[in-house]
């Protein structure tokens, strides 16, 4: 035993060695649980990419117009942090984008979840909503931008409405799937324990649907983050999308690259936060 306990913890964490349990599996190919994190290679690939950037910068291999040097990008970044971009602090550019996403997702959830529930629980609601939902589902939110601009102009309402639409249909479908996934024996059990319809809804159907709803929220966050940047590219004077679009007009490649990196990092962070919340809030996911 002690020999196994001593096996290099760091190597396991890095994914260079299998953990004690996986090590004893003889069938690994095809067993998804036997595929470890491979963290070492993740670190490696990031380091290699950064090194490549350092080297190309030092040797001036790439014209800064196409791709900035790492030093120049860092200088620009500290300047952006200190002075902001076009009289708006960098944190506000980020903040407004995040705020739009959160608003869109919250409104989408507030409207979408009840509609999804109704569709899962009543044939009238399902009949009414089905053509609309199925029609809207394949339309990418970006294709709605022109219409939304015609309706609302280019102010804040327009952007949040667009993101609301982007998350609405995701949330409707997630809530409907969550309701449909309830095992009828749980519903029967609740009724024969004396629960009323409302109590079955509140104490059985809702908690049963939460995992699916949360998956929907995660998807909606991701889609809305992509959509907000694109919407800001088209029409906005604040936000990360607008920042890189304006920077492009002034041929400031370094600012464009900084914007792109920030968009990626924030999207990644949002996903991580959602996964963390899911673990904390819905520990029973997949255990039914």
């Amino acid at each position: 035993m002690s020999a196994q306990v001593k096996s290099p913890r760091l190597a396991i964490w890095l994914g260079l060695a299998d953990n004690a349990f996986t090590r004893q599996k003889t069938v690994k190919f095809g067993d998804a649980a036997a595929v470890n994190s491979g963290r070492f290679y993740s670190v490696l690939v990031v380091v290699v990419l950064l090194l490549a950037w350092v080297v190309t910068s030092a040797l001036n291999l790439i014209e800064p117009f196409y791709w900035p040097t790492i030093q120049g990008t860092w200088d620009r970044f500290t300047k952006l942090v200190a002075e902001g971009y076009r009289n708006v602090p960098l944190i506000d550019h980020i903040g407004i984008s995040v705020y739009r996403v959160l608003s869109g997702v919250v409104y989408g959830a507030l409207v979408g979840i009840p509609i999804g529930f109704a569709m899962g629980l009543s044939s009238v609601a399902r009949g009414f909503m089905d053509p609309i939902v199925e029609f809207m589902r394949p339309i990418p939110p970006l294709a709605l931008i022109p219409l939304v601009i015609l309706w609302f102009g280019i102010d804040e309402t327009a952007k949040i409405f667009l993101l609301f639409l982007a998350s609405l249909f995701i949330m409707i479908l997630a809530a409907r799937a969550g309701v449909s996934s309830v095992r009828v024996s749980k519903v029967h059990a609740a009724y024969s324990l004396g629960a009323s319809k409302l109590q079955v809804l509140r104490h059985v159907i809702l908690p049963n649907a939460l995992p699916e709803i949360f998956t929907g929220l995660r998807t909606a966050m991701g889609v809305c983050w992509g959509t907000v940047v694109a919407a800001e590219l088209v029409a906005a004077d604040q936000g990360l999308g607008s920042m890189i679009m304006i920077a492009k007009n002034f041929l400031q490649t370094d600012t464009v690259v900084i914007g792109i990196i920030l968009i990626g990092l924030i999207g990644y962070t949002i996903e991580m936060v959602m996964r963390w919340l899911e673990r904390i809030l819905i520990p029973w996911k997949g255990k039914g």
């Binding site: 095992r183 024996s185 749980k186 029967h188 059990a189 024969s192 004396g194 908690p207 819905i282 039914g288």
Partner: peptide
């Protein structure tokens, strides 16, 4: 509530 039911499996509330 006068007629309680015990199912084979999977009728507990996992949350």
């Amino acid at each position: 509530a006068e007629r309680g039911v015990v199912f084979q499996q999977g009728a507990l509330f996992e949350w």
